[in-house]
């Protein structure tokens, strides 16, 4: 995934001015006049641990990390499409930031998952086929207009927050560490989407109509987020993961509060059949992957 984001290609040490070497990481050697990138967990750290054999996920854990990584990766690709297309420059950057947060989570999860099969994050992102992706269908749904994107963000961020919040206590140290970094970022994504739900719902007649439409378009995919299966159950019993169904109550309560404040109803729509966790996707994923993967497949190993 490295060629995709200028922000990550530059690497840790070059992000800010004044940081002399890639080794300059934390606050310990920071001065008053330079800005440091901080010393949070990075995907590169996980990749290094995996490469040096310091950590290696079990088959089950890798499969689980692949699911979460794919969710984040597909969403990042979707959100990235807003760059230069958002209604306002400020919102352009906000959605771009959220996309980069998600891409960071994806890189961490995929780097970790790849450890089980001797694959890099790029192998997993660019050289798998549609039915090998494990993301749930909500994440691949098209951006459509801004309200539709906000509806998707609203569902995703409230779901991910509940998930990551619990995963910080995972018995798998790497999953717990990735979740601990991600949960703070996703907390902001929740805030961002909730603010927009309230504003679009309480704005003009047109914005309210679009917000209701967006929620109705996305809500069929909510159910799939909370479906348990064998793998999730097995890992949940071992304490490494959480059963998706256990997140539902908090999700319903918290999203319900925001919707009530916006004077919106929880859409009464039938649930989509789902199946993304087992490689069954909606018609949209293929096109998304074609765009995301074409460059890496045309020029394998290319860097710029």
């Amino acid at each position: 995934m490295i060629p995709q984001t200028p922000e990550t290609t530059t690497g840790h040490g070059d992000i800010s001015t004044g940081v002399a070497a890639p080794t300059a990481g934390g606050d310990s050697n920071a001065s008053a006049t330079r800005i440091t990138p901080g010393n949070a967990l990075r995907p590169e750290d996980i990749a290094l641990e995996v490469r040096t054999g310091l950590t290696k996920p079990s088959e089950d854990i890798a499969e689980y990390a692949l699911r979460l990584g794919d969710d984040a990766l597909i969403l990042a690709q979707r959100l990235g499409h807003w760059i230069s297309r958002a209604p306002e420059l400020e919102e352009d950057v906000a959605l771009g930031n959220i996309a980069l947060d998600q891409l960071g989570h994806a890189r961490s999860f995929l780097s970790y998952a790849g450890g089980a099969w001797d694959k890099s994050e790029d192998d997993l992102a660019y050289f798998r086929r549609e039915h090998e992706f494990r993301s749930v269908q909500l994440f691949e749904q098209p951006n459509d207009d801004f309200a539709v994107t906000i509806a998707r963000q609203f569902i995703v961020s409230y779901y991910q927050f509940e998930l990551y919040r619990r995963l910080t206590e995972s018995t798998d140290a790497t999953i717990a560490a990735i979740a601990a970094k991600a949960v703070k970022e996703v907390d902001y994504h929740r805030d961002h989407s909730a603010q927009w739900i309230l504003r679009l719902a309480g704005g003009t007649e047109e914005s309210r109509r679009r917000m209701i439409h967006g929620l109705r378009l996305m809500w069929p995919y909510v159910n799939e987020l909370f479906q348990d299966d064998e793998l999730a159950q097995r890992l949940a019993e071992a304490g490494a993961a959480v059963a998706p169904s256990s997140l539902r109550e908090d999700f319903d309560r918290l999203t319900g509060e925001v919707l009530a404040e916006a004077e919106l109803e929880v859409p009464d729509v039938p649930a989509a059949p789902g199946g993304g966790r087992h490689g069954r996707h909606s018609e949209h994923l293929g096109y998304l992957l074609a765009e995301m993967q074409v460059l890496a497949r045309e020029h394998p190993g290319a860097k710029w």
């Binding site: 800010s16 800005i35 400020e90 950057v93 906000a94 930031n97 902001y188 961002h192 603010q195 504003r199």
Partner: peptide, 18 residues
């Protein structure tokens, strides 16, 4: 559009690099 969003936009635009 308002102060609450201005704070958030400021966070997104001016604190991206820590």
């Amino acid at each position: 559009p308002d102060a609450a969003m201005a704070l958030r936009n400021a966070r997104d635009l001016y604190t991206r690099r820590n």
